[in-house]
């Protein structure tokens, strides 16, 4: 992009600062709650005695499996993201390359949209019975498979827009140079749609990381993911805001790290592919 200068730059920085304040303000406020005792949260106090008790409680108390939940979430979100990127970009490329402007392509892309519109509570019942009958209830595999499926529509649509942007000449040139279909896809096309893979990867990861309804239905204590664990702090007659804030803060950190490194991993994987 074109760097801004002079007055425009000041306006730009002003807008960015405001946006960041709007986004960060509430997040910082949640962080403050994580180091308060519940009574300080209740009274909305700005002067309070900071404490790490909430973090200690959610990490180490007997009742807590948060570390284990984090591991489950890490496995599910990680695996399902990698898989949905592979499955989704292959599918979108197929639609783009071989089924373009055909009825089938339209039907498929329409179907995934309709599927995406279905309220999740009507899905979880059938899915629970399906995985139970396969003996996959209470396994991370069931969760990985369902998360791939729910993230497929978004991934395919995002990737399709990126594939459509790739100039046709590039592909034709590769074919003339003797590259086969797969080699062209892997060595020429994919490196060009890297930003698309990164953004759909980040979004799939985040959706899987925070997905609650399916995880609740398909898991039990050993396989519960972070959102299910955090929802336990919203009890019938009492919300434990302090613990909820602390565990939410803890859950953000690995997600952020994974996204930063995962992004590099994707970009590097693509560029080494292109160089070879």
């Amino acid at each position: 992009m074109i760097p801004l200068h002079g007055r425009a730059a000041w306006i730009g920085y002003g807008v960015v600062a405001l946006a960041i304040l709007f986004i960060v303000g509430p997040t910082a406020w949640i962080f403050l709650n994580s180091i308060k005792y519940q009574i300080a949260i209740y009274s909305g106090a700005w002067v309070f005695e900071p404490t790490l008790d909430n973090y200690i409680d959610v990490l180490f108390s007997r009742r807590s499996d948060l570390v284990h939940n984090l591991w489950n979430s890490f496995v599910v979100a990680g695996l399902s993201t990698v898989a949905v990127l592979v499955v989704g970009s292959l599918g979108a490329y197929g639609v783009h390359r071989w089924f373009r402007s055909r009825l089938f392509a339209k039907l498929l892309m329409g179907w995934v949209l309709i599927f995406h519109m279905i309220p999740v509570i009507t899905l979880v019942g059938p899915w629970y019975l399906f995985f139970q009958s396969l003996g996959l209830y209470n396994t991370l595999l069931a969760l990985v498979l369902t998360h791939i499926t729910i993230n497929l529509p978004m991934t395919m649509w995002i990737m399709l827009t990126y594939f459509n942007e790739v100039p046709t000449e590039l592909r034709e040139a590769a074919t003339i140079d003797g590259c086969g279909d797969f080699t062209t896809f892997r060595r020429i096309i994919l490196p060009l749609v890297g930003p698309g893979l990164v953004s759909s990867g980040i979004l799939s990861f985040v959706f899987s990381w925070n997905e609650f309804a399916i995880a609740l239905n398909l898991t039990a204590r050993d396989t519960a993911t972070v959102p299910v664990a955090i929802a336990r702090f919203a009890q019938q007659f009492e919300i434990q805001h302090a613990q909820m804030a602390a565990s939410s803060m803890i859950a953000i950190v690995p997600a952020l790290l994974l996204m930063v490194f995962g992004q590099r991993f994707i970009v590097r994987g693509l560029t080494t592919g292109a160089v070879k």
């Binding site: 946006a19 960041i20 986004i23 960060v24 509430p26 997040t27 949640i30 980040i202 985040v206 990381w209 925070n210 609650f212 972070v226 959102p227 955090i230 929802a231 919203a234 909820m244 804030a245 939410s248 859950a251 953000i252 997600a255 952020l256 996204m259």
Partner: peptide, 12 residues
């Protein structure tokens, strides 16, 4: 920093 909100679980 801009993506912090989508990292938080909906219940929180």
């Amino acid at each position: 920093v801009m993506i912090l909100p989508i990292l938080l679980p909906a219940v929180a």
